[in-house]
Amino acid sequence: MGPEPAGGASDGPSHALERVEPLLLIAVGGFVGAALRHTLAVALPAAAFPWGTLAANVLGSFALGLLLYENRLAGALSAETRLVVGTGFLSSFTTYSTFAVETTTLAPPLAVANVAANYALGFAAVLCGRWVARVIA
């Protein structure tokens, strides 16, 4: 699982490991992301408005913006980190399907507010993430 030694051997077993390892990282990220989204939704007080999904989508968009712009600006994070955190954790932590189903269950004014809040705050969160990445880069 650790970093390959310089000029590391690319024989059979290690090649197989290289194929399986990304899946393992995504699986771990997927477990933690979905579990944390559920925990967040349960922890927030029950209300007519789906705050849990909104919070997960905005927080996750901020973190993905930070992660991917950090990679472009400084490149301090490894490919494995981006895979486990980006493709695994954050993509599972945030959700479009729950957002869509919840929107259909709301009264029209709240449904419009839900879409507007997720979109506006989600896009703004990506830009905030990039801003933080620039500051720390």
Binding site: G30, G33, A34, R37, H38, A56, N57, G60, S61, A63, L64, G65, L68, L90, S91, S92, F93, T94, T95, Y96, S97, T98, F99, N118, G122, F123, A125, V126, L127
Partner: peptide, 23 residues
Amino acid sequence: LLVFGTGFCGAFTTFSTFAFETV
């Protein structure tokens, strides 16, 4: 519903990637 709805569908779909790509 917890496994396949909140878990599977929730993780299969993604908002963060959508937001990042759109920006």
